[in-house]
């Protein structure tokens, strides 16, 4: 899905925990996430800390969308 959407010339960032899968399907912009059942959350944190963590992760994704890349790039 990532690749087909990018084919339209729209930058796309893949937020995923198993980043080896994102690489093998050919995602160009990748943000590694927390865990498979909660990629952008962490139930072990307090609601405030979890929100801050999610904000940081989505911030990385936005940074990825504004960064020129030439191939598979991780934004950590």
């Amino acid at each position: 899905m990532v690749k087909e959407i990018e084919r339209y010339g729209i930058p796309i960032v893949h937020m995923a925990t198993i980043t080896t899968i994102s690489e093998s399907v050919g995602a160009n912009r990748i943000v590694p996430t927390v865990a498979i059942p909660h990629p952008v959350g962490d139930p072990s944190l307090s609601p405030e800390d979890e929100y801050a963590l999610r904000k940081e992760l989505v911030g990385k994704a936005l940074k990825a969308l504004t960064t020129e890349v030439t191939g598979t790039t991780h934004f950590e």
Binding site: E4, I5, I10, P39, V58, L65
Partner: peptide, 23 residues
């Protein structure tokens, strides 16, 4: 197929960037 359909939709809607999350 989903990617092509969604991408076409986003393109026509003038979306500038996409975040796709996977579990």
């Amino acid at each position: 197929k989903f990617g092509r359909e969604i991408g076409k939709f986003l393109k026509e809607a003038g979306v500038d960037g996409v975040i796709l999350t996977s579990t």
